[in-house]
C-alpha cells in the first residue's frame, strides 16, 4: 500500500516538481482571490474602478512641464508629463552626483588634512540624515536666500537666478523681465533646483564612498608605476587608476543611480510636479487609488529595468575594453 508513496519520497526530483507546482498553484489562487475580493468590495461600496478615467480631461494644470500641458488634456498626458519631469530631474541629478561623488571620493584620499576631513565630514553628515529632511532644508534655504524676481541675480548675460528659478537662453530665445518675473528662454524652477541639489548631494555622499573603495582597490604599485613613467598625480589618476577602479565601481554605482531615481519620488515634498505628485493629485480627484498607484509602480519598475539594462551594457563594454 505504502510503496508508491515511498517511491515518490525517494524520487527527489519529482517531489521537488510537485512542491513547486503546489506553490505556484497556491500563489495563483491567492492572487485570484485578492483580485476577486477587491472587485467585489469595490462594487458593493459603489467605488468606480478601471482605467477609463485616463482618457477624461484632467482638469488641473501643471506648473512646469517639458510638454505643453493644458487642463483640458486627458489624465494619461498628465501622467506622461509627470514621467518626463521625473526623468528630467533624475538624469540631471545622476550627472551632478557622479561629478560631485568623483570629486569627493578623490578628495577623501588627498594629503591635505583639511580637505580630507571636510570630505569625510560631508559624507558622514549627508549620508546620515533622511533625504526628506535634506530636501526640505534645501528648499527653505533657496526660497529664503534667493532674491525676488524683480531683483534677479544676473551672473551671465541672459542668465537670471531668482525666487522664480533659473532662467537661461534656450532655443534662440533670451529671457527678459516680464510682468510677473522673468519670461522667455528656458527655465527651471526653484523646486527643481532644490530637488536637484538634494538628490545629487545625497547621492554624491554614497558615490564618494564607492569611488573611494574603487580607487583604494587599485594596487599601490600601479600609482608608483605611473609616477615612474613621469605622469603627474592627476594624469596617473585619469589614465591609470580610474579605468581600473571603474570596473569595480560600476555595479554599486548602478545601484546608487537606481536609488536616486527612486528617491526622486520625494519631489512632492518640495512642490516639484513629478510622477508621484501627478498621481497624488489624480488619486484625489478620481478617488481611484488602485489604478493610480499601479501606474506609479509600473513606471518606476520600467525605469529601473531600463537603467539596469543600460549600465549592464556599459559594464560589458567596459570589461571588453579592459581586456
Amino acid at each position: 500500500m505504502r510503496r508508491p508513496f515511498a517511491e515518490f519520497r525517494r524520487h527527489a526530483s519529482s517531489r521537488a516538481f510537485c512542491y513547486q507546482l503546489l506553490v505556484a498553484g497556491l500563489a495563483l489562487a491567492l492572487v485570484w482571490l485578492l483580485v476577486e475580493q477587491t472587485g467585489a468590495e469595490l462594487r458593493t461600496r459603489g467605488i468606480r474602478s478601471g482605467f477609463a478615467f485616463l482618457f477624461e480631461p484632467a482638469g488641473f494644470s501643471i506648473g512646469e512641464s517639458v510638454l505643453d500641458f493644458d487642463a483640458a488634456q486627458p489624465y494619461w498626458r498628465a501622467f506622461l508629463v509627470g514621467v518626463l519631469n521625473t526623468l528630467r530631474v533624475a538624469l540631471a541629478a545622476i550627472v551632478l552626483a557622479t561629478v560631485l561623488g568623483l570629486c569627493l571620493g578623490a578628495c577623501s584620499l588627498t594629503r591635505n588634512v583639511l580637505l580630507r576631513g571636510l570630505c569625510r565630514a560631508y559624507v558622514e553628515v549627508f549620508r546620515n540624515i533622511p533625504l526628506l529632511l535634506q530636501l526640505l532644508t534645501w528648499y527653505f534655504l533657496l526660497a529664503e536666500k534667493l532674491p525676488s524676481a524683480d531683483a534677479a541675480l544676473n551672473p551671465l548675460p541672459g542668465v537670471f537666478l531668482s525666487k522664480s528659478g533659473l532662467a537661461f537662453p534656450w532655443g534662440g530665445e533670451v529671457p527678459a523681465a516680464g510682468d510677473f518675473g522673468i519670461a522667455g528662454g528656458g527655465a527651471v524652477t526653484p523646486e527643481f533646483l532644490a530637488l536637484l541639489l538634494g538628490l545629487s548631494g545625497y547621492g554624491a555622499a554614497y558615490l564618494a564612498e564607492i569611488v573611494r573603495a574603487g580607487i583604494l582597490s587599485v594596487p599601490r604599485g600601479q600609482v608608483d608605476a605611473a609616477a615612474a613613467l613621469g605622469m603627474t598625480p592627476l594624469q596617473g589618476l585619469r589614465a591609470v587608476v580610474l579605468p581600473q577602479a571603474l570596473r569595480l565601481m560600476i555595479p554599486p554605482a548602478t545601484n546608487q543611480f537606481l536609488n536616486l531615481t527612486k528617491n526622486s519620488s520625494l519631489a512632492v515634498a518640495v512642490g516639484y510636479p513629478d510622477l508621484v505628485s501627478i498621481a497624488n493629485t489624480s488619486l484625489n480627484q478620481t478617488g481611484q487609488a488602485a489604478e493610480c498607484i499601479s501606474i506609479l509602480m509600473a513606471v518606476y519598475l520600467g525605469l529601473s529595468l531600463l537603467t539596469a539594462a543600460a549600465t549592464g551594457w556599459y559594464n560589458r563594454r567596459q570589461l571588453r575594453r579592459g581586456h
Binding site: 485578492l34 468590495e41 467605488i47 537606481l258 487609488a289 488602485a290 509602480m297 518606476y300 529601473s304
Partner: peptide
C-alpha cells in the same frame, strides 16, 4: 520587483490598497 519601485509606492499599497483588498 520590490527593488524596482520606490518605498513610497509600497507604503501606498499597504496603507491605501490593502484595506480595499480586505473586508
Amino acid at each position: 520587483l520590490v527593488r524596482g519601485v520606490p518605498m513610497i509606492s509600497v507604503l501606498f499599497v499597504a496603507a491605501f490598497l490593502f484595506p480595499l483588498f480586505l473586508p
